[in-house]
């Protein structure tokens, strides 16, 4: 089987950007490059949903064709996993829908197929989700207010690694923090298949003042290893969707 690679950026932040380019625009750029951007907004214990300026979190994810979620720190582990997997399924679903439209015409998508056929397509989506290779660049906001949340972030990333490494497909993770000391972002861990060694990573962080989310995202886009196009992986599954649903 020709395996494709899905690329994602997972942005973990607790506030609004206040420096540099508009992150929503950079997210749109990411979409053009075939990289999905997922955003998790972390609330402090005494903060209520909605009262915070976390709307940007949703806007970035929507623009970057990813998934967003706003949570309290104690729900982070499950959320990180859920968001990553949901975004994977969503990307694969998007690609399959494109193929369906291509084959069936008339803007036909999975939702337009009769339920039985839909089940067959879903099996393909599940199968690809299990075997596809995944590259996740984790971008962690380390501005001052994030200080007390970093241990939880670390734990949830370890948990994410357990979940994704239970799949058949290969995984690559990299962890970057922003703002960096000299540049917009700073590398904490280079591409690696497992996050077991993450333990020491967050200790050398000095949390600083500004939140340059836009510039950080922009730099992150160039950090993915060059690979061939992900559309290739669809070729194999054509036989499942030959029959038209109309």
């Amino acid at each position: 089987m020709s395996k494709g690679t899905l690329k994602q950026i997972l942005l973990i932040t607790d506030g609004c950007s206040n420096h540099g380019e508009d992150p929503v625009a950079i997210a749109a750029l990411a979409r053009e490059k075939g990289i999905a951007i997922n955003v998790i907004g972390i609330l402090s214990q005494n903060e209520a949903y909605g009262e915070h300026g976390l709307k940007e979190v949703e806007d970035i994810a929507m623009s970057g064709r990813g998934v967003s979620q706003i949570v309290y720190a104690n729900q982070l582990a499950q959320t990180v996993k859920m968001v990553t997997q949901k975004a994977m399924t969503q990307t694969i679903h998007g690609m399959i829908n494109k193929e369906l439209t291509h084959i069936l015409g008339d803007e036909k998508q999975m939702e337009d197929l009769p339920p039985d056929k839909r089940g067959q397509v879903m099996e393909v989506v599940d199968e690809i989700g299990e075997t596809v290779n995944l590259e996740v660049l984790i971008l962690v906001d380390i501005s001052a207010s994030m200080d007390d949340k970093l241990p939880t972030v670390q734990e949830s990333l370890l948990d994410l690694s357990i979940s994704l490494n239970s799949r058949t497909g290969d995984n690559q993770f990299a962890i970057y923090a922003f703002p960096g000391k000299k540049q917009s972002i700073e590398r904490l861990m280079d591409w690696t298949p497992q996050l077991d060694t993450i333990g020491k990573v967050f200790k050398k962080i000095s949390t600083g003042g500004i939140t340059p989310t836009g510039p950080a995202l922009q730099e992150a886009l160039d950090l993915f290893p060059e690979r061939r196009s992900k559309r290739k992986l669809l070729g194999e599954y054509d036989e499942y969707i030959e029959e038209s649903g109309s």
């Binding site: 299990e130 948990d159 357990i162 994704l164 490494n165 239970s166 799949r167």
Partner: peptide, 24 residues
């Protein structure tokens, strides 16, 4: 069997307790 567990609840999940993978 052989795939990654789709949905779980932390207390009952061996991955959460650090006692194994989430492979089905």
């Amino acid at each position: 069997i052989g795939r990654a567990i789709k949905e779980y609840t932390e207390f009952f999940d061996r991955g959460y307790w650090g006692m194994g993978s989430r492979k089905a």
